[in-house]
Design a protein around this nucleic acid. Sequence first.
RNA 1: GGCCCUGUAGCUCAAUGGCAGAGCAACUGACUCUUAAUCAGCAGGUUGGAGGUUCGAGUCCUCCCAGGGUCACCA
Length: 508
Amino acid sequence: MTWQPTPLEEQRLDKLASLQEAGIEPYPLRVERTHTSEEALALFETLGEGEEATVTVCGRIQSMRDMGKTVFAHIVDGNGRLQLFVRREAIGEEGHRHFRKLLDLGDFVQATGTLFRTRAGEVSVQVSDWKLLSKAISPLPVVKEQEVDGEVVRYSAFADVEERYRQRYADLAVNPDVRQVFRTRAQIISAMRRFMDDHGFLEVETPILQPLYGGAAARPFTTFHNQLKQELYLRISFELYLKRLLVGGYERVYEIGRDFRNEGVSFKHNPEFTQMEFYAAYWDYNDVMAHTEQMMAYIAEQVTGSAVISYQGQEINLAPPWTRITMRDAIQKYTGIDYMNHTDAESLAVAVQEMGKARGVATQTPPGASWGKLIDGLLGDFVEPNLVQPTFVTQYPRDISPLAKGIPGDPLHVERFEFFIAGMEMGNAFTELNDPIDQRQRFEMLQQMYGSDDEELNPIDEDYLRAMRYGMPPNGGFGTGVDRLTMLLTDKTTIREVLLFPHLRERE
RNA sequence: GGCCCUGUAGCUCAAUGGCAGAGCAACUGACUCUUAAUCAGCAGGUUGGAGGUUCGAGUCCUCCCAGGGUCACCA
């Protein structure tokens, strides 16, 4: 949609013209900053009696209080804010008038002057010269803040969630706490990367555009390469490529990147999301569990200063060791059903229905759901919400775990775990299947289970099987959602608050 | 996709079916150090969109759009 200036924008365009008439360049090329606001404030504290310091600072005008002869303005820069004290005697009649009349909230300015403390006690810049750096045409939402008993109270905050997401730049510009969320997110990823690097893992990048998709049960996005005349899929996981690298001789690899799943959006689902997966040769899922709990505690400590965090008013302790419970015990504990007494889908569905009736709760046993799917459904409905403290749920049904190694003597389970924190699934891992014959059978079993028109059915990846036939070391693998981890460590209840530009429906 | 809720000035919000309002921002001015500055004045609207009921609709009805919640779906 083309831009039609609003009346407020027309006023600012008029000011822009006045500035240019006065010979002021509204979008100059060069900036002469000597100090950030933070540095300027620190510098002032080091000054001795009678000492002076001149600084040139830059930032966006956040507030302006015009007292006639004197104008007080706060500018905000990357890490803080600073008050400008603009006095007519100090900068001359014209500079004073232009500052008062032609600048607006939202403009970027540069100001030069000496640091001093006002009568009210705030360290400020006594401006002797200023320069416009960028004229803002559209008014940012006005946010006023006041300090009451050390707490910052905000007024008229920009709060409409839809507009905040659609215009994240404006959200970030006026809401410092939002800026902080994404700093924390960067720290989380940085700490995760450090932990992996320090444990001998090699960071790699594998294809996002893939001729075949796999590694998860999800519908992919499809696209097309014109010159190759080839249909391509955006990856739904990294798994099959990372394990090829173990065949190639790397012992420990990981990747942090974007996965794409063509599914519904919700408070914990976005069509593209960030995952970290790793694979370690000679590890089994017990080793992966130990690594997981250490890593999560490390990240929390690095980011929040403690392995004990607060999420939605609940205290959560990420320090190892975490609770470990088998799937069978977990289901039994929270539903009363021992699914080993119902080892086929039909019988288990009956047991689930009876349990639901007895407890007066709705249960879902969709026709055609496999035994494993039913168990997974019970986990999601009855167990997951209770797992507030970090918990590993271990030993998953084989039929929903086609890439995990079986447990010897147990035809129904595999060495797989998921871990849960704050009632949310945070990750998935297993002792990886490295037997190419078994793997082919698992893939073929899936083909029968899903039916050929089910889009969640992964095509059989013959190249992956070929790689495995060259010999893949036994290994443990792991995947976790970085967005959900960020939600946890920033105390946010929706994934959109931790994505800079969450996906929204197109308007009009 | 089902159900529920929401959409009014740039921002935050009012308005029993009866003249669309307030605060902040803007604009005009006053003011010797203010900090949600203050004071005086002035302006700002297709009430998300399209229909309908009614003498009269921001308000009631239908459809559509967008968002939120919830359920379904989603390893």
